[in-house]
């Protein structure tokens, strides 16, 4: 379970967010500039909150009172970035293996094969990221984050940089991932349609605050608001 209760000032923008995620796929929903990416960056340990507490299962990742701030590389939280962020000097295979090597996990061929198959990347392994299409790149980014055996997977608008045909190509993989990989996920998106396919609970952010949280029915209201 992920429990977040944090405050952060970024220039004129103030974030004050509290929510819990009890497994499955939690959507962080909101328009651009609502603070979604900053929140997941704080969960990942890439930005430090000013105040508050973040806990994953029974481990405290951040607590301003207890002066706990675990370094990002010790958190074991997988992160799929909007732009993939594959390492350009490494092959796809080396990108996929990077998290395992750096987290000093034993080699697990079966798990590797399973993820490569799940994301359909077998024919890409020898290529460099520069030679991948946008959709392939995001699949590799998802695989790379999964292969470090994360306790939690953060996906920050993983489809936003793709055109709608590519989105339709990747979304089924993510749904398969949700059903087969059993890793809790926080899925950031501003797109209700996408979230309906993948999310189970919704946390709706607006202006750095949680406006509402609940089930997928919140997304219907978002559609109405957009009209």
């Amino acid at each position: 379970m992920l429990a977040v209760d944090i405050e952060k000032r970024l220039g004129d923008f103030a974030i004050k967010v509290a929510f819990e995620s009890t497994g499955g796929v939690t959507a962080l929903f909101g328009s651009s500039g609502s603070g979604k990416t900053s929140v997941v960056n704080m969960v990942a340990g890439l930005i430090k909150p000013d105040r508050g507490r973040i806990a994953l299962d029974d481990q405290v990742l951040f607590d301003s009172h207890a002066r706990v701030n675990m370094a990002a590389h010790r958190r074991r939280i997988g992160y799929v970035f909007q732009e993939g962020r594959l390492f350009p000097h490494l092959s796809v295979a080396a990108n996929l293996d990077y998290g395992r090597r750096m987290s000093r996990l034993p080699r697990d061929e079966a798990e590797q094969r399973r993820i490569v198959e799940l994301l359909d990347m077998g024919h890409l392994l020898d290529r460099r990221p520069g030679r991948l299409s946008g959709g392939e790149r995001q699949r590799v980014a998802v695989g790379r984050a999964l292969l470090m055996r994360p306790r939690l997977l953060l996906l920050d608008e993983p489809l936003a940089s793709l055109d709608s045909a590519r989105k339709r190509e990747i979304l089924p993989y993510l749904v398969r991932l949700r059903d087969e990989a059993k890793v809790p996920m926080v899925y950031v998106s501003h797109n209700p349609g996408e979230l309906r396919r993948i999310a189970e609970t919704v946390v709706w952010l607006d202006g750095g605050r949680v406006m509402k949280s609940g089930g997928l029915e919140l997304l219907d209201q978002a559609d109405l608001d957009a009209l």
Binding site: G45, L46, A71, A72, H73, I77, H89, Y98, G99, S103
Partner: peptide, 25 residues
């Protein structure tokens, strides 16, 4: 530097980020 952040989330300590990402690039 976002590549270095990504390496950090994959479990690489700052020194190993330097050796495996910063230096080769």
């Amino acid at each position: 530097r976002r590549l270095e952040d990504a390496a950090g989330t994959l479990g690489a300590s700052p020194f190993r980020v330097f050796l495996t990402i910063t230096m080769p690039l």
